[in-house]
Design a protein around this nucleic acid. Sequence first.
RNA 1: GCCAAGGUGGCGGAGCGGCUACGCAAUCGCCUGCAGAGCGAUUCCAUUCCGGUUCGAAUCCGGACCUUGGCUCCA
Length: 467
Amino acid sequence: MVLKLYNTLSGEKEVFSPLNDSIVGIYSCGPTVYDVAHIGNLRAYVFADVLRRYLELKGYKVKQVMNITDLDDKTIRASKEQGVSLREYTDRYIRFFFNDIDLLRIRRADVYPRVTEHIKEMVSMVKTLLDKGYAYRKDGSVYYKIQAFRDYGNLAKIDLSKIKAGITVEADEYEKEDVRDFALWKEKKEGEPFWETEIGEGRPGWHIECSAISTKYLGPTVDIHTGGVDNIFPHHQNEIAQSEAATGKRFVRYWMHCEHLLVNNKKMSKSLGNIITLESIVSSGFRADALRYLFVSSHYRSKLNFTWESIRHAENTLDRLNNFIERLPGYESDALDSEEIARLIRSTQERFEIEMDNDLNTPGAFAAVFEMIGRVNTGLDEAKLSTQDARAVHELMMRLDKVLDILSPGKKEGLSEEIEALIEERERARRMKDFKKADEIRKRLEEKGIVLEDTRTGVRWMSKFIK
RNA sequence: GCCAAGGUGGCGGAGCGGCUACGCAAUCGCCUGCAGAGCGAUUCCAUUCCGGUUCGAAUCCGGACCUUGGCUCCA
C-alpha cells in the first residue's frame, strides 16, 4: 500500500518516497517560548506526532528535529519586562512546553535545538548568502534580496507584484532596499542581546533559524517539513529562499501544514481574548487525552472548531474506547476461534492503513475501528468469540494505538490485597443474593477509587481516576 | 482588493461518480438483583443555491451566495 501525503507546494497528494530508504527526516517548526502554548499550537505538534508515528508503523526510521525559538522580539521584550535574563525566561516556558506535550502523549523529537545555541550556523549561512549575492548589508543589518530568488512566492502562491509597499507591508524601522525584503541579521540594539560575529554585532532574523538548524541536523534537503498554515507565508517561503539560494539544492520535498484550530468559529487571538491552553482544559476537569482524541479524530487539513461541548463529547467517546479494550483481556469463553473475527481483524487493519495512507485520514481510520468495536461487542455479549479471538482484537487495538495513542488501559497490577479481598467478599455476597451487603462493599470500594462492573463473565474493575 | 481552503443530519466529521461512513447527543426497547457497560431500533428524501455533463452527482464542470484564513516576525 502506498502512502500519499498532501504537499502544500504542489497543492496535491503525492506518493511519499523518502530521499533515503533507511531514514526519513522531518523538520517541525517548534514553539516560540515567550508564553505558554495555546491549543492551536499544540494541534500542530500532535499532527506532527501522528505523522511520525505512522511513518514508523509503516516501517520507516524517522529522525525528527524541532527547533525552539528562544530568541526573538517577543522573548526579548517579555524577559526585559520581567527583569530576568533571556535564558531564565525562556527556560521557564520550555519547561511548560515539555509538560504540555507530555500530557498530550506527543513523543519527543530526536533533538530540540535552541536558536541561541546555533548562532554560528546562522551566521555562516548569512555569509554564504552575502557571498552569492542573495543578500546585502544596510547599516549593520543584512537583508535578503527577494528579487534575486526566482521562485519566490511558489509555496504561498503569492504574486509579488501584488504586494504594494506601504499598504500591506508596514514600513519597518530598519531601512531596506525593498520593503518586501526581510532581515537575515539585525544590527545590535541598545539593551538587546547580541553576538559578536564575522558579519558584525547583532542577532539573527527569525527565518534564518529554521534554515540553518534544518541544514545542520538533516542536511540540505529534508523529506518533510511540518508547521501550521500560518507559517506558509512568510516564514516557510523565506526558508525556501534562504536554503535553496545558499545550498543550491531543493530544501524540502514535502511541505505539510496543519490547519487552524478555531474557537467558536474564530481564530484564537489575544485581542479576541479567546486563547485556550491545555492547562485551562485540565483545570476545567477534562483529561488531556480527550484533547488528543479531539485532534486525532479530525483531519489535520480541516479547520477544527473547538467548543467545550466538543471536548466533552470527545471524552465520552474516549470512555467508550477504553471500556472496550478493558473488557477484552479478562474475557473468557469456550467458544471456538471464529473465522469471521479473524477476517474482521484483517479487514480492519487493512482499512486503517488505507485511510491513513490517504494523507493521514484519521477520521476514516476511526470509522474502521468503531465498526469493528460494534461487531466485536455484539460477539462478546453473546459469548461467540473465543478467548483467543478477544486477545487478537486486543492486540490489534494496541497496535493501532501505537499511532493514535489515545487509550488508557487500566492498570491491572497494583490492586492491594485488601481491595482484592473486598471484591471477593462482594462476589460471595452477590452469589448469596445478599445485595444489600454487596452494594455496601461496592460503595466502599468506590470511595477508595475503584469502580466495579458486573459482566457476564465476572466482575471487572477500573480506577475511577483513569476513567 | 488579491490568494487559499471550505460549505454534508440536533452537533462534530468522512466520502473524490452508483453501495446505511463513523462518532456524540436524544427517545424507546433488550440485558441486568441494582448500577454501569453493552446490544438493537428510531430521529421523516443530511449533502448551501441555480444550471450543466451522465443511465446515475454530496462526489465532475460553470455560475451565485456564504464562512474561515493568508497577504502584518500569530501554529
